[in-house]
Amino acid sequence: MRDVLGRSVTIARPPRAVLLAEGFQLLALAVAHPDPVPLLVGRGGDLRRLDAALDNGFRQRFPALAKVPEITSAVGQGFSLERALSLLPDLVILSAWQMNAAEMRGNVEQLDKAGIRVVVADTFLRPLDELVPSVRLLGQVFGQEARAEAFAGFHEARRQAVLDRLRAAPAAEAPAALLTAFPGRWNCCWVAGRDGAGEALTLLGARNVGLPFLPGPSGAQLSLEQVLTAAPDIFIGTGARLDDQGGSGGGDSGGGEGLQLGTGVGAAEARDSLRHLLEQPGYRSLPEAARRRACGLWNPVFGSPVAIAAIEAMARWLHPTLFADLDPAATLAEINRRFTPVPFDGTYWTELPAG
């Protein structure tokens, strides 16, 4: 088989001792495998930092997860090769972003010499393109191809339905969108580029107003003046209920809580956090059009099984007339019913009422 980086990997027998180098990968693994926790000998600690309520849901559904050691303590943290070897895995699942470090490439060579197979999935760098291939990959690894394909087919069919409608619609001016990470929590403004969450803007035919100011395809910090110059007519912020003790994954703290989104967050709480954000210094300076069309997304949503529901929510925001009949909440309910052992029970997107 080939992983998402095109590496050829041979797995002679089903893995029985698995190390998740990034804990967030548990969300994709749980879609592909009906009972993944007994296989785990270690995992990253990032899921608990990004969404403690969701992590707790997994612990309640799979009590043995409490005994699985966490090999990292913060989002975006590398792991110790010695620690990994001590856990005696027969398979390590890495995330694509981890392979960008020269140290990790050396670690992979050492793991290979120890007879430990390594596969690379991706739910972060290019989540819209690689989430489904990652689920399919994990289905292959664990002999759960039919289960993985059921989710992949559902996701792809709904995504294609959105794209087909966009292509069939009369040509119109692309909405000018600003997509920024953790507004109100990090100092303004970490703006999405072409990759990561920025893929969604391109997919849905929006004009990413941050691109002319960015040095490359990835997101970067822009000044408030640059953001205002861009004159967006829709504002989309991402947020989460983060565990500050574990770190927020980067950026400078703006001293606020920012957008509250994720598992266990009520709809009113999420909406109120967005309203409060727009009252803060700086965000009050956004163009009136963007303030009227202000929306929020759970920050890691596109790397999760909820991704297709979030795409539908964004389609409604960006093209409200064309996609008025889409019901992303119903899509989320179907994902919970058919594909996830732990339901996504919370608020993963929000918007202010029109008017």
Rank of each mutant, 00 (worst) to 15 (best):
V4M: 02
T10Y: 09
P14S: 13
P15W: 14
L20Y: 02
A21R: 10
L27Q: 13
A32K: 10
H33T: 01
V37D: 00
L39E: 01
L39N: 01
R49F: 07
L54P: 01
G57E: 02
F58H: 09
Q60V: 14
Q60L: 14
L65G: 03
R83K: 14
A84K: 04
L87E: 11
S95Y: 00
A96G: 10
A96Y: 00
N107R: 14
I116A: 03
F124D: 10
L125R: 11
P127H: 03
L128Q: 00
S134C: 10
V135D: 02
A150M: 13
F151T: 05
D164G: 07
A168G: 13
A169Y: 12
A172I: 03
A177P: 05
L178C: 07
T180M: 11
P183I: 08
P183K: 03
W186Y: 13
N187W: 12
W190F: 15
A192T: 05
G193K: 02
L201V: 15
A206Y: 01
A206H: 03
N208Y: 04
Q221K: 11
P232S: 08
P232L: 10
D233F: 01
I236Y: 02
G237K: 01
G239N: 02
A240K: 01
R241V: 15
D243N: 14
D243R: 14
D243S: 14
G249K: 02
D252W: 11
L259K: 01
A270S: 15
L274T: 05
H276I: 13
L278R: 06
Q280E: 15
G282A: 04
S285Q: 13
A290G: 07
G296M: 00
W298I: 12
N299L: 13
S304A: 11
E312M: 12
L326I: 00
P328T: 04
A330R: 15
T331R: 09
I335P: 12
I335F: 06
G346D: 07
Y348P: 09
W349S: 10
L352I: 07
G355F: 05
G355A: 13
